[in-house]
Write a protein that binds this DNA or RNA. Structure first.
Lengths: 182, 182
DNA sequence: TAGAGCATGTAATAGGTTACATGATTAG
DNA sequence: CTAATCATGTAACCTATTACATGCTCTA
């Protein structure tokens, strides 16, 4: 299995409470829609798979005056699989880190701090690399128009890396407060 | 055709000068590798397609003491197709905007300014939306741990949107200088 | 002679989107 | 009665990755 993000996201949503396929779509849209999307073509097959793997159960609900719906809930085994994913250390992508953090409430706070810290260190390395390039490649040294366009993407890298690092620091300190207050 | 990003990226690289499939991989790695990747499984089929569509030509090069290589170059029709893509206005994703800007030297500067400005306006709207949520959803009003984790992703949205907007302003002013100095 | 780097390419598969099909119920 | 919303699902398709196969040339 490769990334299979949607699989774990659906499992993650289920970990926050039982819901139907339809609910999952809405919940993802509301909660993390600004950086992550799922389509029906994924939700329903994934739910089927999750049930066949015993990582989820479902019951059919028929309330008065509403269409029937299948309400899914995560199993203990499903929880274990989710935690395994949350623990896996390939958070090169912002999305993956952000998703894992969003579902982080099922983890000890210290794990989340550690995860953020590792991510922060990666970004600090990236920023350092960008800074090194920018030291000899900047508007003062640029000769051709194409170099400007290269510089813009480099600046994007710098500016966003800085933003990521700041965000990490902020989140870390809140998590540390939460950990103390507990 | 849908997004087909790699197709246009390869065309874009070709627009900067003739090169082989192997070169394309290296060039992408060096120039935009920090936010975009291509695999061989894409490069070679895309090059074949580009040639069949007359958007690229190639000649076989055999220099002394080196393996043979196919050197591809973009055609006028290919250029037109690239420009069409650069002009298309679906830059929701950072990557797409960034790629288009990277290949922006084939466009008039004003087009690039306009593109950045549209992107900036989108990001300003996003930021406004995040700010609105943050107004009633922040550490002072949060009750459950899960809400903190939601807040973290919201903050990520805010912090990065701000960074994008700053970057836009910076790039815009450099582009304006370039336009004047021309 | 072994390994690194140059160089081209393909087959299998995964992951995801789009567009469609189907149907119940509620509000205007 | 019609549109919106609730609700489930599938088939076709596209894009991209992974992993492999092949072979040349230079350097240590």
């Amino acid at each position: 299995m490769k990334e299979n993000t949607s699989y774990y996201v659906i499992l993650g949503i289920l970990s926050l409470g039982e819901c139907s396929g339809y609910d999952i779509k809405k919940k993802i849209g509301n909660a993390i829609g600004y950086f992550y999307k799922v389509s029906n073509g994924q939700i329903y097959p994934v739910l089927k798979k999750l049930v066949s793997q015993k990582y989820a159960d479902f019951r059919v609900e028929k309330s008065e005056g509403k269409p029937y719906r299948k309400v899914y809930s995560i199993t203990d085994q499903g929880f274990a699989v989710l935690k395994e994913w949350l623990d896996s250390r390939d958070n090169q992508h912002n999305n993956e880190l952000l998703l894992k953090l969003y579902f982080g409430s099922v983890q000890p706070i210290s794990k989340n701090i550690q995860m953020i810290d590792e991510y922060k260190k990666i970004k600090e390395k990236h920023l350092e690399a960008y800074d090194n390039i920018a030291a000899y490649f900047n508007p003062g040294t640029i000769n051709t128009p194409q170099e400007y366009y290269s510089y813009f993407t480099l600046r994007f890298g710098q500016v966003t890396a800085k933003a990521y690092i700041d965000w990490c620091s902020e989140v870390e300190s809140i998590l540390q407060e939460m950990d103390k207050g507990k």
